[in-house]
Design a protein around this nucleic acid. Structure first.
Lengths: 327, 327
DNA sequence: TCAGGTCGTTTAATCGTGTAAATAGATAAG
DNA sequence: CTTATCTATTTACACGATTAAACGACCTGA
């Protein structure tokens, strides 16, 4: 009985004494057969160790039960958390997940989409650069992560509210002179975080200096100089990675947080809570982000005509040791 | 001409005025056709935007051009670097990569393998717990990462040499009283690292205390107490994550590295070089590990009868600010 | 008793490729 | 000029599943 091949639907049919169509109906839960036959087929299938050939099914139905997950990079503390959640939820729906990093370049994003298409994904969850040009017609449905995207479903944290929250907490701690390490404003989330902060702080806080930085743990010289001028009581950072870079500069310069200056992050990535870092930050629910995006994508796959949906998740303040009251 | 469907091999054949077999031969580079026909077919295929249906090919050939990459978790600084390399190399060979985390539990590993099989991967690169039970016959070829595994191809760093290197450098710096945070010895790499260290240090260094810890950035009470006893001049750690945990404990206890005690890591994960952490460590070539494993897997897919291969990659010392000369 | 309806099952076509075997066309050999 | 030998191309089937349509058995009501 143990042939080289793994058993097919026909093998199951033969052993169970029914037609292959019947087996297919049973295994797809179409409720078209009598309970006895149903039970028989399932028993035989299990006995033979049958497992459906996904390629054949994909060929016939046009659906591969694979989704893609496009992220700027995996070597960052933030994105793997999202990827993990996407994968988990997709698996629960019977989908496998192809995680790909786009290397942070908008041009590569389009190539990555084609790569995914070549491998036959049914759709994808993607953190896209706003300059990304959507193919027309779209090759497959995409759910945009982290920012609204015209024409796409999206899931993202409430960056604007997060920015406001930062400003409000800073003021509650008595800070009036603040320096800002903001991300480049072409990235939607960076823009909104800054906007929220500026709006809430308007007239009540002096933004002494501001430097646009890349979202990596190294700061450009302009930022280093600004920090060393010691003109502010708090540095508000566009995200945790940048905040860590700021902490590093402080240490190198013989200053410390929160003694000499408070440092405020954004994201609450996993390592923000390490005692060595211990960063006050705005938490965005990374895992939720991923699983909601997966849900959205899969419901889109089931109904392509549903109107575009935009899901905004709330952020919260996480107070740790890098900030202190001033005054 | 723009129908809803994407063009098939038959569409190409019709437009080019040849049979579908000819198109197939051309597109698979089988060198069976005249140069003119070859050129014609390629041109038409490009014009129509033809792209091969992977499901159909997989159905016919039994190969899906997908490999799996099984890692204990993605939310760690070490593993994503490996995953990225595997993916990159696999893509170069025309394979997509399904990255899956096994959640650190040997039982889940077997389930994950079945999941991958269900989705039709041709093989996988996997960091396996030694207790992992290989299915017999194996469902698909696996390359073992980080440790030799009976019956499997493998790629791993020279953990033993790394352990020796640690001991030698420690002695060169004058350390004679050392505490050790070793991993649990059922994990091959942890075992070998410790063994290398112990062998090289034998008779010349006093191992004042040793605590087995999990490979996470939190230490058990026994380890915390040991550190606080201040009996040693150096703490040798099984990996960087544990070293960071040790640094945290030092900070909480009002001590610092390397002033009060030196701290030595292993891995050289990305963040070990952050100024806030600045960890002396043994570097294993994570990206190489991934790409060599991918190469090995793919060559195995092409020749199942090749003898099992075991690839050992060299490690190097990276000296940073967490260690100092003593004496 | 028989037409019509219901329900469970089977028959058979199909998805897009790959590839062994058949075929035709050209070339070489006798 | 015929026959054998290649070679470029086509024909035709298989891969394993899904699913519309055909079928047959059973039931119901006039």
């Amino acid at each position: 009985m143990t042939r080289g091949r793994s058993p097919t639907i026909k093998d199951v049919a033969k052993v169970a004494g029914v037609s292959s169509a019947t087996v297919s109906y049973v295994l797809n839960d179409l409720n078209k057969v009598t309970p006895e036959v149903d039970a028989l087929v399932r028993r035989v299938a299990k006995e033979l160790g049958y497992s459906r050939n996904n390629a054949a099914r994909a060929l016939k139905t046009g659906r591969n039960n694979i989704i893609g997950c496009i992220l700027p990079t995996l070597t960052s503390p933030v994105f793997p958390e999202i990827a993990q959640a996407v994968q988990l939820r997709a698996e629960a729906h019977g989908y496998a997940t192809l995680v790909i990093d786009s290397g942070n370049a908008p041009m590569r994003e389009e190539k990555v989409v084609r790569t995914l298409a070549k491998h036959g994904v049914d759709g994808a969850v993607a953190l896209l650069h706003p300059k990304f040009k959507l193919a027309d017609p779209p090759i497959f449905p995409i759910v945009s992560l982290d920012a609204k995207f015209p024409g796409l479903d999206s899931v993202h944290a409430d960056h604007y509210a997060g920015g406001r929250l930062m400003a409000e907490h800073a003021m509650a701690l008595g800070h009036r002179r603040i320096g800002m390490l903001s991300g480049f404003q072409d990235l939607t989330s960076s823009f909104e975080r800054r906007q929220g902060f500026v709006d809430a702080a308007a007239g009540r806080v002096e933004l002494v200096w501001e430097v646009n930085v890349h979202l990596v743990p190294q700061l450009p010289p302009a930022a280093v100089e600004a920090i060393r001028r010691r003109e502010v009581t708090m540095i508000a950072c566009v995200n945790d990675l940048v905040a860590i870079a700021a902490l590093s500069v402080l240490k190198d310069s013989g200053m410390s947080a929160p003694g000499d200056v408070s440092v405020f992050g954004f994201d609450d990535m996993q390592w923000a809570s390490w005692p060595l870092i211990d960063l006050t930050t705005i938490r965005q629910p990374l895992a939720d982000l991923g699983s909601r995006a997966a849900d959205l994508l899969i419901s889109r796959l089931d109904d392509r005509s549903r109107p575009v949906e935009d899901l905004v998740l709330p952020v919260t303040l996480v107070e740790r040791g890098s900030t202190a009251r001033v005054g």
